[in-house]
Computed example of a mutant assay.
Amino acid sequence: MYGIVDIGSNTMRLVIYKVEGGKPRVLLNKKEMAELASFIQDGMMVADGINRACYILDSFNLLAKDLGVNNLHVFATASLRNISNSQAAVSEIEDRTGLAINLLSGAQEAEYDFVGAARTIDLKSGLLVDIGGGSTELVMYNNMQIQNSISLPIGSLSMYTKFVKHLFPTKKERKKIEECVREMIVRYDVDQWGDCPYVCGVGGTIRNVDRLNSYFYDLSKNNRFVIAENLNWMVKKLENRENKKLVPRETLETLLKVVPERVRTIMPGMIILNTIVKYFNVQSIYVSRAGVREGYLYKQVLTKEGEQNA
């Protein structure tokens, strides 16, 4: 069995896999809403954020040992990558927990997203999108080969913190987030990639968009496609049009029912996704259940231990 811990900007997650014949099967999937991006001040992670990360890692480590997994493989993404005290924070967390942390670069995160999703998707060519709490990974691929990849320093939690004054974004705040996303696309030359009708979406934000899509359009829980028109309608439907602190009760009840753990961040994440969809003239999004954790397992753990060919 293998234990993988993903330290994200919004959530921290422990997944324990059993691998048979080179294929992993999830035995346990434990998530904690760490919201580490909210502990960043002046570009640095403050002590409370480091304490939060240590507390969750210690609890994960105890749980894993109780289940017979004595060696956790821990990696961090934008949560610890996009801070000015990155190395100091990583070193302190490692010293306090006794766990080694692999700090992934944006390029590595994008690659592992693709490697994980590639084993589950039917789309041979397209654009892969992963919207995390502090970064957004984009991978353009053709015939299952990566053509371009980039990690943009924008995410659902960072956009909420930067632009949203109350619980849900207003129309004016939505437009500011959209403008920021378009600016990043141009700044990082992603605008040169050209149109792409199909997206493979990975990660928690897009999985929760899929849940909302199934709820609003009365689709099967097994549905994995979100069409662009549906996404755009949901963004307009859920934004705070009243420009007040109080939001419509119907909106709040919907999100608490369908995506309770992401009430604050789902809308900024949807706005990021919708802006990308419009920019690349996307028609539909296929939602994958695999992503960076599975890619990390394949490339960093199983391959090195000779468990599979990759």
Rank of each mutant, 00 (worst) to 15 (best):
A76H: 06
L28S: 13
N61M: 12
G98V: 11
D58A: 10
V90T: 04
R81H: 10
Q41E: 12
A78S: 14
T11S: 15
L57R: 09
N10Y: 10
R96P: 04
A78V: 05
L28A: 08
D42P: 00
A89Q: 12
M45N: 00
L63E: 12
Y55G: 14
C54E: 12
V69K: 09
I16C: 03
L67Q: 10
H73G: 05
M33Q: 15
R81A: 06
L36R: 03
N51V: 01
K31Y: 11
A88Y: 10
N51T: 14
S9G: 11
I83S: 10
M33A: 15
M44N: 08
R96G: 02
D48I: 13
G21C: 06
L36W: 08
S9A: 09
F60A: 03
N71K: 14
K18F: 11
S9H: 03
V90E: 03
S91D: 15
M44S: 10
E94C: 15
A53E: 05
V90H: 02
I56L: 14
L62F: 07
L62I: 07
A78N: 07
G43D: 05
M33S: 12
N10F: 00
V90R: 14
Y55A: 15
N82Q: 05
I93E: 09
E32Y: 12
A53C: 13
D42Q: 02
E35Y: 14
V74A: 07
I50E: 00
L67W: 06
R25Q: 15
R13L: 01
G43M: 06
V19T: 08
N29G: 10
A78R: 11
T97N: 01
Q87E: 14
L27D: 00
L62T: 07
C54K: 10
K23E: 15
R25V: 14
E92W: 03
D95H: 03
